[in-house]
Computed example of a mutant assay.
Amino acid sequence: MGVTVNKPGICTTIQDLGRRGYLGSGFSPSGVMDKRAARIANLLVDNGENAPVLEFCLAGPTLRFTTNTCIALTGGNFSPTVDGAAIPMYAAIMVHRGSVLEFGAPKTGVYGYLAIAGGSIAVPKVMGSASTNLKCGIGGWEGRTLSAGDYLPFVTKNVEFLDNLGSHALKDDDFYDFSSDEIVLRVVPGPQEGMFTEQGVNTFFKETYTTTAKCDRMGFRLDGPEIETVNGSDIISDGIALGAVQIPNHGRPIIMLADRQTTGGYAKIGTVASVDIPKLVQCKPGRAIRFEEISVQEAQAACRKEAQEMRSLAKVVKRPCYGGVSPRRTARRLTPILEAQAKKSAGNKLWIEFEDGHNAAHAGDRA
């Protein structure tokens, strides 16, 4: 019971939300590049938000399922099809034994995510995470990208009924703003902001930069005006957070991402708010980016707002929808409730008295 990889796609790996607590030992967190998309994918198939997902980049894999299950696809739109028929994004979709899932070129975005009901791909956790660390060769599926012929087992789940099955209510294009030529990333200044001249800081926050083809899971290099330093940008290596904006000696930003090194020797002018990282990683080369300065408190408020949004999405997908309710399944779900009510009623005095009177009346009839 699982899925067979017919074609691996480009850099298809198993990821969850990342490996925590090992930066001090030199292990990067890894994990999905777009946490928002991965969380929503798992939400749609009733998985925990940290369940493993398949992440693919630029070109999706071709997969054949060996059992019936339910899947959800989020992130970039790779024109997915099942057995040649187009299927929607951001929806729980039934697939059957022998079904083949394929993808086309991405219409929007760069990274796509596949979640499978029942907890998704069953792989052992390494240091508390199922994420693939490609540099260290640990986690995920044998610590590597998927290859043709791989067979990935997953935990099957009774998917005869899912509250959100068939719901197409979740559309996230407004968040990513794919139709816009420019996106705005919110940045908390520091920790080495003082190493840049006032003109350099103004350049960073007021000028426009563009994404380049020099990008991967480790970081995104941007092109644009040079950011002026006071006396160079070399520092004694220190820790690097997700979204840290390093400025090497050439003066152009590098934004550090999931597979970043744990320490680095270039000054950091700021850190991109974590809630905006998904917007960045879904940018194709050549897209314009502007930076907006915010405070730590504003970044924290943005995180709280996103958490509330996810709770609201959970309520949406838990609401039964047309076509998702099976009368037979509903009857089975109601049976224990009705039985419990019947047992409770058996101890009700009025009900007992009614039964006693009814029996007595019948006894008199028989006499």
Results as ranks from 00 to 15, higher is better:
I240P: 00
I294M: 01
G265D: 12
P278G: 00
Q282Y: 05
Q282E: 11
G286F: 05
G265V: 13
A258V: 09
G232T: 04
M256Y: 10
L242N: 08
K284E: 12
E292Y: 14
A288N: 15
G265Q: 12
S274T: 14
N249Q: 13
A288K: 15
D259Y: 03
H250W: 08
I289A: 00
I255H: 06
T263M: 13
L280S: 06
A258M: 05
V245W: 02
G239H: 12
K284S: 13
I235Y: 03
N249W: 01
G251D: 05
H250F: 11
I277W: 06
M256K: 01
I255A: 06
I247R: 12
A288R: 15
C283F: 12
G265R: 07
M256S: 11
G264H: 05
V281H: 11
M256N: 14
P253C: 06
I247H: 06
L242V: 00
L242P: 00
A241W: 04
P278D: 13
V281Q: 00
G286N: 07
Y266I: 10
N249T: 13
R290F: 13
P285L: 02
K279Q: 15
N249M: 13
H250I: 09
A288L: 14
T271L: 01
R252N: 05
G286H: 08
E293S: 15
D276K: 04
A258D: 02
V281N: 07
I247M: 02
E292D: 12
G232N: 06
R290M: 09
G251C: 08
G265K: 05
E292I: 00
I294D: 04
P253I: 04
T271G: 00
E293V: 11
A241S: 15
C283V: 06
L280A: 05
I247P: 11
L280Q: 10
D259L: 09
G239W: 12
G243R: 00
I254E: 07
A273Y: 00
D234Q: 12
V272K: 07
K268N: 08
G251W: 10
M256D: 01
P248R: 10
L280P: 02
V245N: 04
K268T: 03
V245S: 08
Q246M: 02
G232P: 03
G243H: 12
Q246T: 13
E293M: 15
P285I: 02
A244E: 05
N249V: 01
T262R: 07
G264N: 08
G232M: 11
Y266K: 03
R287S: 02
R260P: 09
M256Q: 14
S274K: 12
L257S: 05
V281F: 11
Q282D: 05
T263P: 03
R252E: 14
G232A: 13
D259W: 07
G270F: 09
K279F: 04
I236A: 10
Q282T: 03
I255S: 03
R290A: 09
P285K: 07
L257N: 12
I277A: 03
L280Y: 10
I236E: 14
G286V: 02
V245E: 00
V281C: 01
I269S: 09
Q282C: 13
D234M: 08
P253W: 03
D238C: 01
G239S: 14
T271N: 14
E292R: 15
S237F: 04
T263V: 15
R260M: 08
G243N: 09
T262L: 09
G264I: 14
I289S: 05
L242R: 09
R252P: 03
A267N: 02
